[in-house]
Design a protein around this nucleic acid. Structure first.
Length: 421
DNA sequence: GTAGGGGTAGGT
DNA sequence: ACCTACCCCTAC
């Protein structure tokens, strides 16, 4: 096997691990460094996966810190490098993480360490965000500017100070980060290894092609693609949903909802799971040695935090305060910090009226359209569309008139909602 | 136009 | 029964 071929396989494996791994030791940066990629290797998707993985891992460990800001900035650059749209979820996540990284020091003021807050203001809002402004980053949103303005004014305005301190920035930051992760895991699509395995499984039992999906012609060849381990998104193969499952933000355990479709047949994800265990062991042994100096306090056991629940509201009361102390540079215990439980970010759209169809509504005399499942091609098109245009459903529809001929912009919106759910 | 809540109904 | 495509509504 030549070195070039080895390298490509390394990339596939690395990519697969990044998508499915939930072990903080399998840090994206480390994995990528093991590949020794050239600076311009064109592996943007691989790199993006690594960033997403690193953010996931930090969240699993309960850290919402300035390192996440670094990662989000890096992610923005990767998006720009690919001419991909910058979704709102990235901007919001950045804004609220920045806010959280500053607001946490407001509690240090009580602990007679006001300088920590001032330092944070300078470090984050003057230096870091100053650099963003210089390069006209789209991360500098009005919301971010407002936060910066308020945080600075709060120094002399104790009422404002108290008000800001009451805002549950941590909760919002985590919520937006989760949204960001969900959307972008969907966008990067299935790992190549999984697509390939899926293809082979189908070939082996070529009789029953699940829903008759066409095998991706571009994937038909076995010769590896030259650049990106994932450049060729392929068609989502067996089921578009399966594609999202491994990624579900924290890859929470077996939440791999082994899509009950494939009735009885083991899914590709299942088949690969065993291999993954071996890979995990391998990675552990490889990374443990060289990185113990950074391995920090966390143990190897990754108990997926109940963050998932936190995202959706109900259960964030838990607020493990001590994790704040791990924040970069933070040393003051932020005890006594009281965070009100804020309502869900989503607006409450409760209308006491309604229900019950308007009798005279035309109700499109023809009634409903015929229900038609989304084909992998359509899903892939949608994904490409979002990558390109963001969530401008009409623009996406118009960009792919023939592929999305049967879908309205609202359909696109609904489908996207399903994908990231 | 879009987002998001939420209902309805077809398919399994 | 459950999933999800489709639909409707409201708010912005």
């Amino acid at each position: 096997m030549n070195a070039e071929g080895d390298k490509v396989i390394d990339k596939w494996v690395c990519e697969f691990v990044l998508r499915r791994q939930q072990n903080p030791r399998a840090c994206g940066k480390r994995l990528l460094s093991m590949l020794r990629l050239e600076e311009d290797d064109g592996c943007t998707t691989l790199k993006k996966s690594a960033v997403l993985r690193d953010i996931c891992n930090r969240l699993i460990q309960g850290m919402v810190d300035e390192r996440i800001l670094d990662l989000l900035e890096l992610f923005e650059k990767l998006q720009l490098h690919e001419d991909s749209a910058i979704l709102e979820s990235l901007k919001s996540a950045y804004c609220w993480v920045a806010a959280e990284c500053t607001v946490r020091y407001m509690f240090a003021v009580d602990a007679m360490k006001p300088f920590l807050y001032l330092d944070a203001l300078q470090r984050i809002w003057d230096l870091r965000i100053g650099l963003l402004r210089e390069r006209d980053s789209v991360l500098v949103t009005q919301e971010l500017i407002d936060w910066g303005y308020n945080l600075k004014n709060a120094i002399d305005d104790s009422e404002l100070f108290q008000r800001l301190r009451q805002i549950n920035t941590r909760y919002s930051a985590i919520s937006y980060l989760c949204e960001f992760l969900k959307e972008h895991w969907v966008l990067v699509g299935s790992p190549y290894l999984e697509l390939e395995a899926s293809r082979r499984v189908r070939h082996k039992g070529n009789d029953t092609n699940v829903e008759g999906n066409p095998v991706d012609v571009r994937n038909g060849e076995t010769s590896p693609r030259p650049n990106d381990a994932h450049q060729c998104p392929g068609h989502l193969e067996d089921d578009p949903v399966d594609n999202t499952n491994g990624q579900s933000v924290f890859n929470v355990g077996q939440q791999e909802h082994e899509q009950s479709d494939d009735k009885g047949k083991p899914t590709v994800a299942q088949e690969l799971k065993e291999d993954l265990l071996e890979l995990e062991a391998l990675i552990n042994s490889l990374t443990q040695a060289g990185n113990d100096q950074t391995s920090g306090p966390h143990s190897t056991s990754v108990t997926p935090q109940p963050l998932q629940a936190g995202v959706r509201g109900q259960d964030y009361n838990k607020e493990p305060e001590n994790v704040n102390e791990r924040a970069s540079g933070s040393e003051g215990t932020l005890s006594g910090r009281v965070r009100p439980h804020l309502p869900n970010l989503r607006s409450f759209n409760v209308s006491p009226l309604r229900k019950g169809r308007l009798p005279n509504k035309p109700q499109s005399s023809a009634g409903r359209r015929l229900r038609k499942g989304w084909t992998p091609e359509e899903v892939q098109t949608l994904r490409e569309g979002v990558k390109e245009y963001g969530k401008s459903w009409k623009a996406i529809k118009e960009a792919y008139p023939e592929l999305l001929a049967n879908r309205t912009p609202v359909d696109l919106k609904d489908k996207w909602r399903n994908l990231v759910a």
